[in-house]
Design a protein around this nucleic acid. Structure first.
Lengths: 339, 339
DNA sequence: TTGTAAGCGTTATCAT
DNA sequence: ATGATAACGCTTACAA
C-alpha cells in the first residue's frame, strides 16, 4: 500500500536516486554489480515506475488517443483491433473517446488532449458540423494526428480510407449487372467525405450506363432511427426500386427491417447491397452482398504511420492519402432470380 | 507551438504562479477582478492545464483502465458504451486494454497500472489460467477494482454479472418446452465462472425434468475456431441432438454455420438458443432465439460503482455481487414445427 | 488577497 | 561509477 519509488529503493540500497534511476535505463555508465542489486530489490519490492512523473519529465506520455464516432459498429471494432495490435507491440497506451456523432463532444475531447496527456491522436470524424478549427488547433499545438475512414480531407497529415468512390461505383455496377433498372441509394447526410464519395460512385455508375438519376431514389438519413425507418419505408413503398445501395451498414440493416415489414422479398423484388463489416452477413435472411472494408488493416496502418512519426520524434506526418481497397462479396441479396 | 503554462500566464499578468493556479479552482480566496483577468488571458492563449503535472501532484489521474478479453463482441461494445457514458459524465478518461484471452497479457497490463497511471480498474477476465495473483497484487497497491461479467469470484470487491445460472436454466427449459428430447450444450472451457454457471443451469433444468445427462451432448470449446467447428459438427452429425444451447454468442454463430454446411434445418431438425447480444439476431436465417444480457446496464453499473468509490476517495468498494437479469427473446430458431 | 516555497517521482546535466 | 541538483508543471500550506 505504501508507495515504492526510486527514493525508497535508493535509501534501502544506500545509493542515490539518480544512480538507481540510471539502472533502469542506462545499462552502461553503471557497474554491473550495483545494477543487479538494484534490479533485484526492485523485483522484490515490486517496484513500478510512476509514468506520470516520467512523462512529465520527458514530455512523452507513451499514450495515444483514439477518437471515434461510435463503438457498437463492426468497422470500428475491427479497426480498433488493428490499432491496438500495433499499440501493444510498441508499448503504447490507448485512450478512447467516443463522440456519438456529436461535434461538440469532438471539440471538447480534442481540447482535453492539448496538453501532454497524449503523444498523438488517431481520429475518425463525427458526422457533425463542418467546422475543423479544433483539429487545426491541435495541429498547431504540435500534436501528431492521423485520420482514418472519416477523414478531414484538407488536413495536411496522413489520411487513410478505403476506395470509397470506386466501391460505390462497383456496388452500383453490380446491381446493374444483376438486372436492376431503378436503383435507389441511401446514405448519411452531412459533411462526411466518405459518404459523398460513395454517392458520387453511385452517380457515376448510373451515368456510365446511361441511366438517369432520379432524385426521389436517393434518400439521405440522419441520426434519428425512427425517422430513417419512415423515410426508407416510404422510398421502397412508393418508388418501388428494384435495387438498393446503402453506403453504411446501419442503413442496410434498416432496409432489411423495412423489407420484412413490407413483405418485400429480397432479392426477387429488391436487390440489396451495402457497405458492411457484419460478421453474420452470410447468415442473414437472405445472405447479404457486401462491400467490406479492410477495417483491421485501416486501423493498423493508421497506428503504424502515427507510431513511426512518434519514434522519430517528429510531429511531421506525411501529407498523403493512403487508400486500402474494399472487396465486394456477392451473396444472395443481389442474386438474379429465375423469374 | 511553444507551451502555454501557468508560469507564462503568471508572467504576462505580473502575478505569481500560485495566484493563477488558484483562479482555476478556488473561486474564493482571490479577487473577482484578477480572476477574470486570468481567465480571459487563459482563454485568449488557449491555456490547457497539463494533466500529468496536476495528477502527479494530487495523486489522482482522473483516468480509469478497462481490461477486456476482446472488442469485436457485441456484449463488450455495449458494455463499453455503458462505461463510457458514466465516464464522460464524470469527466474521467478511459484507457482500454484488450487481452485477447491471453492471461500473460492480462498480467502485464495490470502490472502497468500499478503506479499512478489510473485511479481505478474495470475488468472482465480472460479465459486463461486460473491464477489471480496479479489481481490480488493490484488490490494490495490500493487500486479500486470492479469486476464485470467474467468476474473473479473470490475477490473482495464488487462483482457484476447477469443471472447466469437462471438464464442457463431458462434457456434449457425453453428447449424442453418446445419439445426437445436430446438437448446439447456447447460452452467455452476454462476457468470462467459464468461459463460454469450457465452450464450448471443447463444441468439443473435437465435434472428437474427428469432428463438424463449425456456427456456426449456436452461439448467444450477453446480458442481455435477450426477445432471448435469440427467438434460442433461432429456433435450435430453424430449425436443428432434436437436442441442446442450455447452459452456464448460466438458459438451460436458457429452452430449456424455448421448447420448450413450439414444442411440441417433449424428449427425443424435442431432448435437453437444461445446467449447473444447480436443486433441482427432477428434478421438471421432463421431468426435466433437469444438470451440477451443487459450489457449496457452492466457496464454502466460497473462504472458507477467504481466512480462512486473514487469520488469518496475511498478504495473501499463493497464486497458484493450485483446481478442484473437477462431476457429470453423467443424467435424462430426454437419454434415448434407443425410436423 | 497575493506570494513564497516545498514537493509529487522522475530524468538529465554536471560534478566528483 | 556514483551523486548532487535542477527541472518538468502543477498544487498547497504557510507567510506576507
Amino acid at each position: 500500500m505504501d508507495p515504492v519509488n526510486l527514493k525508497k529503493l535508493a535509501e534501502q540500497l544506500n545509493l542515490s536516486v539518480s544512480t538507481v534511476s540510471k539502472a533502469f535505463r542506462n545499462s552502461y555508465d553503471i557497474s554491473e554489480d550495483t545494477k543487479s542489486r538494484i534490479l533485484a530489490l526492485a523485483r522484490e519490492l515490486n517496484y513500478q515506475p510512476n509514468p506520470l512523473a516520467s512523462s512529465l519529465r520527458t514530455q512523452k506520455s507513451k499514450t495515444i488517443a483514439v477518437i471515434i464516432p461510435e463503438i457498437a459498429n463492426n468497422f470500428f471494432t475491427q479497426a480498433i483491433n488493428g490499432i491496438e495490435s500495433v499499440a501493444q507491440e510498441s508499448g503504447y497506451h490507448v485512450l478512447f473517446y467516443i463522440t456519438h456523432e456529436d461535434h461538440n463532444k469532438e471539440v471538447s475531447f480534442t481540447r482535453l488532449l492539448q496538453s501532454g496527456r497524449v503523444d498523438g491522436v488517431l481520429i475518425s470524424l463525427s458526422n457533425g458540423a463542418g467546422n475543423f478549427d479544433h483539429l487545426d488547433q491541435l495541429r498547431e499545438k504540435g500534436l501528431p494526428m492521423v485520420f482514418f475512414d472519416r477523414i478531414y480531407e484538407s488536413s495536411s497529415t496522413t489520411r487513410i480510407t478505403t476506395n470509397d468512390f470506386e466501391s460505390g461505383y462497383l456496388a452500383t455496377h453490380h446491381l446493374i449487372e444483376q438486372g436492376c433498372k431503378r436503383i435507389a441509394h441511401i446514405y448519411f447526410s452531412g459533411r462526411l467525405s466518405i459518404s459523398n464519395k460513395r454517392k458520387d460512385g453511385y452517380l457515376k455508375a448510373l451515368a456510365d450506363h446511361g441511366m438517369e438519376v432520379d432524385e426521389k431514389l436517393i434518400v439521405s438519413c440522419g441520426q434519428d432511427r425512427t425517422e430513417n425507418f419512415r423515410n426508407v419505408k416510404q422510398l421502397i413503398e412508393q418508388e418501388k426500386p428494384d435495387g438498393l445501395f446503402s453506403s453504411f451498414e446501419k442503413l442496410v440493416i434498416l432496409a432489411y427491417e423495412v423489407c420484412a415489414e413490407l413483405n418485400i422479398v429480397i432479392p426477387d423484388q429488391l436487390k440489396l447491397i451495402g457497405f458492411s463489416n457484419l460478421e453474420t452477413a452470410a447468415l442473414l435472411n437472405p445472405s447479404l452482398t457486401t462491400i467490406t472494408q479492410p477495417a483491421f488493416e485501416i486501423g493498423w496502418k493508421a497506428a503504424s504511420v502515427l507510431f513511426k512519426a512518434l519514434e522519430k520524434n517528429s510531429a511531421n506526418i506525411p501529407d498523403e492519402h493512403i487508400v486500402i481497397d474494399s472487396v465486394l462479396i456477392k451473396r444472395k441479396s443481389t442474386e438474379k432470380g429465375e423469374y
